[in-house]
Write a protein that binds this DNA or RNA. Structure first.
Lengths: 237, 237
DNA sequence: TGCCTGCATATTGAATGCAATATGCAAATC
DNA sequence: GATTTGCATATTGCATTCAATATGCAGGCA
């Protein structure tokens, strides 16, 4: 490792990575995802292409391409010759999604015990502690944010990209729904207890336990959600 | 239930349901899916928009919209300003997909035991018998076709649309890959034995057993596939 | 001879325009 | 007065056009 050739010095300068060019429709997809997640585009609202075009400052072509992507992700529904509406989540769909989510995350927990580095587990513990702090302060919103990022992180360290992308899609659809956050206050303590157990399971790399805790945790979240909607949780099984 | 008012008679005529209008881009999506599944558009092949437009007889707009959908399904990859290529499946991705598929179908088997009607179970048995006939005759292709439809049918009768759509997507991506059928001849007998056990599990509505058999069956299919590629199956776990 | 630069061509990305379809309202009919 | 029919408007679906970017090759320079 002698001094580098002067001609190669330039390569050593940190340029902050290659500047990435995002095509317009890609940007529009991202923006619409956010708008839907934040509820700016409420469920069931019909979208008139031209209006959105004016508001976003793009022409109809990239917007329409973006709609196709969002439709394939299940965030909007395209009615032939009648435009797009933001999909409305029925309790049935919410139940089905949570049922699948429970199995996927349970699997992720199992894999995380196999593949996560010690550093990553420490990072999860760290997130957990911060979440607990918000819990003690009853800061629902911040708690919710960290809670979500814990679940996302577990799936990430499971080292299965297919699993991650499927989970991400489901997660996105749940996140933006009108049910958002509805499953928290009821039995908040129980949810937190699940997380305590989960972190320990991960730290001891007890895959079986992590699997079972996550599955129970998410299935319970359906119960909490159903209760908050005055629905019999069992009526959808 | 007296004779209906003559004015209402028309509603009683069977019109074969509403005629459905498929937009062009939708048709293109379906066609491209087939072309990719059949290998007409081989993996890794770059697609020049204009060429395909001429061949399909459509303009670039619906084709591009179709690409966005297929990209979001993972069948093609869009390189900014450089066009689309049919995605190539690496052994890593094949492994990851099968791992997820195993869990999803296992869950589906469990649900099928709860929700399938007796008629549907008889239908599955019927498919199974036909598949066995092809097995005895060593008709690989027909065996393969029925085999696939059995798996699809199990997911259908599980009565969870979210599960079904996710499974369908994974299934489509596996189907078209160069690995197609590669996992059959090795240990064909073992695969068939799994199916025998599976059908019995379903008929006795033994959810736990159906779950475990399906999971094992698909995980074993990774082993078969890895062997046929001269890969150590364990090296990807 | 090997590499770099600059231009010509090919191809994609986005905007616009036109045709087809749906929607809403008013007039006509029973 | 209620229902239906026909027309005007609004909106989407698709084709075409224009602009931006990438690709390949020829010529210049060390």
């Amino acid at each position: 490792m002698a001094n580098p050739d002067p001609a190669e010095v330039t390569t050593a300068i940190d340029l902050g990575g290659p500047i990435e060019w995002r095509s317009l429709h890609e940007t529009v997809v991202a923006r619409l995802r956010d708008l839907i997640a934040e509820g700016q585009l409420p469920e069931g609202s019909r979208i008139i292409e031209r209006e959105l075009c004016d508001q976003l400052g793009v022409s109809r072509t990239p917007l329409r391409e973006a709609f196709k992507v969002l439709a394939s992700e299940g965030l909007v529904e395209i009615l032939p010759n009648r435009g797009a509406v933001v999909t409305r989540l029925s309790p049935r769909e919410a139940h089905d999604m949570l049922a699948v989510l429970a199995r996927l995350e349970a699997f992720a927990g199992e894999l995380a015990c196999l593949h996560a580095t010690d550093d990553e587990l420490r990072g999860l513990r760290d997130l957990h502690e911060r979440m607990m702090e918000y819990y003690r302060q009853r800061e629902k919103l911040e708690y919710f944010r960290i809670n979500q990022s814990i679940h996302v992180e577990i799936v990430r360290v499971a080292r299965n990209e297919v699993l991650r992308s499927m989970h991400g899609r489901l997660h996105a659809r749940m996140k933006r729904s009108r049910f958002r956050g509805n499953d928290i206050p009821d039995n908040w303590a129980a949810a937190v207890a699940d997380h305590e157990e989960l972190i320990v399971a991960l730290e001891t790399r007890n895959g079986r336990l992590a699997h079972d805790v996550l599955r129970r945790h998410i299935e319970a979240s359906w119960t909490r959600l159903a209760n908050s909607l005055a629905i019999d949780p069992a009526s959808y099984d």
